[in-house]
Nucleic acid binder design. Structure first.
Length: 929
RNA sequence: GCCGGGAUGGCGGAAUUGGUAGACGCACACGACUCAAAAUCGUGCGGGGCAACCCAUGAGAGUUCGAUUCUCUCUCUCGGCACCA
């Protein structure tokens, strides 16, 4: 063993030894408990890895190593996701076959990963482009097809003109192609679509049982976007036809003043005969079609639309006749593509109604019974306030339980007086922000003015006024017309009740102007009115079915055959895989067909059903097909009879720890959960969720704060770092940079910290006693064992490393370090820095690999110091510290603390109040003047 | 706009159930070793003050003997969704 820490020699040496001895292969038929630790497998690009890529792999490596040492049978595999556009585009650009490109890139990736010293079981390596793998990707598709989950659709889909392929909703980012940033066009074409929406409710419900980061769970909930509402029918005047609308606000049905159809709505064509201004309507629809999704949904865009003349609809609630419009603010693909418009309670409808001068009818109002309210009456003749506190639960006169009096002090105006009195009498503090809720109304009575103040809201349907000694109730509308009510009060009333204000009211409240439903809380009214108009209570999802076909070459062929006689016929399972054929040009055709369509030999096959000439489906699957189930194949990668052996699946599934980037939250992780639930339904897997625990890896961004990219020339290559500082240092550094899930900027100058640490560990061996084996740093050691174990479990690698550094600092203070202590340090460090620890471990005379050593267990009794430092506070401020032996009696500690000069100084002239003691931690002396 | 995170020295970041704020590392300064430099080792390192002390965890209130931690209000920031009825 060399005296200098030479990472190049050491790392190569042990990597060779490990791969030759198979220390990391996952055992079959093991009686040990299992741990399936998985990385989101990479897509090998032509650029190779940058230092950010391995971050997650380092984490699973550390985790899986600790689990192995803790006695688990660990499965930690690695493979390649290689179908799809990136590889194909790379191939086109570099004029090689995609397969050749994938082979080359994969080889490079594997070399780079190997240098970092990962514990992958390479005997389980998979590649999604391998026919023995994609045979099963096709097999799953066939199963879905047979269950009716895959269907052919001719609906307009998202088309990327640059990539020349249709895309799924998940492939868009703000209406642009996620890959190339091109605005998406709507294009009607034949597509294969998967009914992922059938699983929306289950995917949503099961999110709660997953141990995943909150942010990902929230993102998935948003993506699925469940909303409950009602579908109701609006009859068309003088026609058998009707318009079905979807709304979550059926409580506002009486306030509907018009209806709107999306430009794509089929009914428009059906109504052509009755539409008086067909030309205008048709023109508007054409214009809409020409707009991209971005243009159409751009924020702040003025509402546009056209009134459909000659057609009107009937509000089922009150039989009112309502005009009908076509407008593109209603989307064809959500709900029913038609809405009832309630401008008083919906911002979009309000905007549209204002522009087209349509009537606005308010049907929900503030509910004072729900809000805290205080009324106050000012009698101007006597200058006295009478306060009345409203309380929804008061028995006799609802809302009035007590009265108080008060009068304005010198120079106070009415509002100031009210505020002060409210505070004094009711301890109700009115902030200035609440002023908008403070209004005043009253009326003239024999030349005097009575004012009634309300704080917190006003019952809009009924108003309480003082009429001499008696209380009179009247409607707001009546009060506005009341001769005795002053203009000042009328203004206040309007302000308070929004009655004439032109604004949208979105809060909850009680119904008004709604016939028999007046006074009903609007939440209750939703169901009541649904029943009343015989609506259907339904659930809608934002999630759309998965557009599953791509008009590109480099993907799994969809295993279907079109036959004139039999229709669409699945390729028999025994004929799988349908191998992707060689083709002269794999560049996209742009015609809506993939390049496969140009190979007659491949396309024309006999129909498996009738034997007539059939044509193969020429679309291919999207990049996400293979990655939606690959984790199952690692369990049984070489099985030629089935996707995965049932027994093996039962043993290894589900994945215990899954690590990858947050960018997959609404694509890969949605797709995989969908696939897994389907496979559960057909009995392939035994549990209905694929990934029990998920950890997000935070990005490593470049030193300049930008994303690492060739384009910016700021890429740091891991090969260089490994060569210069060693794999162990890089591993340590990436884990030490900051919290694992958080993105951090790379800093090459900071790498020296971890490197110095390893060099100090290396040098510590000189101080290790070869003979005696005492336990000199017992407490420090056991604290570290506890901390490192817990931190790795929770993915707090930065603090785990910090605690190892602290232990080293402790050991360095000791003249001769015991062999035992040093070995524990090495074992704890081994998952982080596998090479240097193996070298030092063997140097101590150990015959077996350190990576097969049992993980140490912390003894709780040895984790505590015999002596503790107790903080001494006076009135919560630190004034001194005292060192006492652990669990010293409280009285003794108190006495010691009070005797300290630093404490006495503060007690002079003070009255002693009490002492708070936190055992072994702190003592706080509370004193008063 | 809605939902969910977050804000602590020059920098990355630590802080059990509320209990000595700034662990660990980087950078920096000084010292030792050296002809010198690098490496290494040692000391210091939130701000103010000679000091005693005072002020400091985005801002402001509150609860408490005691708040980075709990409650309320606000600001900024990151992420998801968004003309989704």
């Amino acid at each position: 063993m060399s005296e200098k820490y030479d990472h190049k020699v050491i790392e190569k040496k042990w990597q060779d030894v490990w791969s030759a001895s198979g220390v990391y292969s996952a055992g079959e038929n093991s009686v040990k408990p299992k741990k399936y630790v998985l990385d989101m497998f990479p897509y090998p690009s032509g650029d190779g890895l940058h230092v950010g890529h391995p971050k997650g792999y380092i984490a699973t490596d550390i985790y899986s190593r600790m689990k192995r040492m803790q006695g688990f049978n660990v499965l930690h595999p690695m493979g390649w996701d290689a179908f799809g556009l990136p590889a194909e585009q790379y191939a086109i650009k570099n004029k090689v076959h995609p397969r050749v490109a994938v082979e080359k890139n994969t080889k490079r990736y594997k070399e780079q990963l190997s240098m970092i010293g990962f514990d992958y079981d390479w005997s389980r390596e998979i590649n999604t482009t391998d026919p023995t793998f994609y045979k099963w990707t096709q097999w799953i598709f066939l199963k879905m097809f047979k269950k009716g989950l895959a269907y052919e659709s001719y609906e307009p889909i998202n088309w990327c003109p640059t990539c020349q392929t249709g895309l799924a909703n998940e492939d868009l980012e703000d209406g642009k192609c996620e890959r190339c940033d091109t605005p998406i066009e709507k294009k009607p074409m034949r597509q294969w679509v998967l009914r992922i929406t059938d699983y929306a409710d289950r995917m949503l419900a099961d999110i709660d049982k997953l141990d995943w980061p909150v942010s990902i769970k929230e993102a998935q909930k948003n993506w699925i976007g469940r909303s409950e509402g009602a579908e109701i029918d609006f009859a068309i005047e003088g026609s058998e036809k009707k318009i079905t609308v979807f709304t979550t606000r059926l409580d506002t049905l009486f306030g509907a003043t018009y209806c709107v159809l999306a430009p794509e709505h089929k009914l428009i064509d059906e109504l052509k005969e009755s539409i008086a201004n067909w030309g205008e309507v048709e023109k508007y629809r054409t214009e809409t079609k020409a707009r991209t999704e971005i243009e159409r949904t751009a924020e702040g865009r003025d509402k546009t639309g056209v009134k459909i003349e000659g057609v009107s609809v009937i509000n089922p609630a009150n039989n009112e006749n309502l005009p009908l419009f076509v407008a593109d603010y209603v989307l064809g693909h959500y709900g029913t593509g038609a809405v009832m418009a309630v401008p008083a309670h919906d911002e979009r409808d309000f905007e549209f109604a204002k522009k087209f001068e349509l009537s606005i009818k308010r049907v929900v109002a503030h509910d004072i019974k729900k809000i805290r309210g205080v009324g106050a009456i000012l009698e101007t003749n006597t200058g006295t306030f009478i306060f009345q506190k409203r309380d929804a639960n008061a028995p006799s006169r609802p809302g009035m339980i007590s009265s108080f009096g008060g009068r304005p002090e010198d120079g106070e105006d009415e509002l100031t007086c009210l505020k002060r009195e409210l505070f004094e009498e009711l301890l109700l503090k009115i902030k200035d922000d609440d002023a908008q809720y403070i209004g005043a109304f009253g009326y003239k009575d024999d030349g005097t003015r009575n004012i009634l103040f309300h704080v917190g809201g006003v019952d809009t349907s009924t108003l309480t006024l003082m009429e001499g000694e008696s209380i009179v109730e009247m409607k707001v509308e009546d009060a506005l017309n009341h001769e005795k009510v002053t203009d000042f009060v009328k203004e206040a009333l309007i302000e308070l009740t929004d009655v004439k204000k032109q604004s949208v009211y979105l809060d909850d409240g009680r119904l008004i102007n709604s016939g028999q439903f007046d006074g009903t809380p609007n939440e209750d009214a939703k169901k009541k009115i649904t029943d009343f108009v015989k609506g259907r209570w339904v659930t809608k999802y934002r999630l759309k079915d998965w557009v599953f076909s791509r008009q590109r070459y480099w993907g799994e062929p969809i295993p279907l055959i079109h036959c004139e006689k039999c229709g669409v016929v699945p390729v028999p399972e025994e004929d799988l895989p349908v191998v992707l054929p060689e083709v002269e040009s794999y560049e996209p055709t742009g015609t809506g067909e993939s390049p496969l369509a140009g190979i007659p030999d491949w396309v024309n096959v006999p129909c498996p059903n009738c034997g007539d000439v059939g044509k193969r489906e020429t679309n291919t699957m999207p990049q996400w097909a293979g990655s939606s189930w690959y984790y199952l194949r690692f369990i049984d990668p070489h099985n030629t009879n089935m996707l995965v052996d049932k027994e093996k699946e039962k043993y290894w599934s589900p994945v215990d720890m899954y690590v990858g980037g947050a960018e997959h939250s609404t694509r890969h992780l949605i797709y995989a959960r969908f696939y897994h639930k389907f496979l559960y339904d057909i009995g392939v897997v035994n549990y209905d969720e694929p990934f029990n625990r998920l950890q997000n890896v935070g990005l490593i961004i470049a030193e300049d704060g930008r994303k690492m990219s060739k384009r910016w020339g700021n890429v740091v290559n891991p090969d260089d770092i490994v060569s210069m500082y060693g794999a162990d240092t890089m591993r340590l550094y990436e884990m030490f940079m900051g919290p694992f899930g958080q993105s951090v900027a790379w800093s090459t100058k900071s790498i020296v910290g971890p490197r110095r640490f390893l060099e100090r560990v290396w040098r510590l061996k000189e101080k290790v006693s070869k003979t005696e084996d005492g336990l000199r740093a017992e407490v420090a050691l056991h604290k570290t064992i506890k901390k490192v174990g817990e931190d790795i479990e929770e993915f707090n690698f930065n603090t785990a490393i910090s605690s190892l550094m602290i232990l080293l600092n402790e050991l360095e203070k000791i003249e001769t370090v015991s062999k035992n202590d040093f070995e524990v340090l090495l074992v704890l460090l081994a998952p982080f820095a596998p090479h240097i620890t193996e070298e030092l471990w063997r140097d101590l005379g150990n015959k077996n690999s350190i990576h097969l050593e049992p993980w140490p267990i912390a003894d709780p009794a040895k984790c505590v110091e015999g002596e503790v430092t107790v903080a001494v506070q006076v009135n919560g401020k630190l004034r001194d510290t005292i060192i006492v032996s652990r669990d010293t009696e409280e009285d003794v500690v108190k006495e010691m603390a009070l005797a300290r000069p630093g404490v006495q100084k503060w007690m002079e002239g003070m009255v002693f109040s009490k002492i708070i003691v936190v055992p072994n931690k702190l003592i706080n002396i509370v004193i008063k003047e």
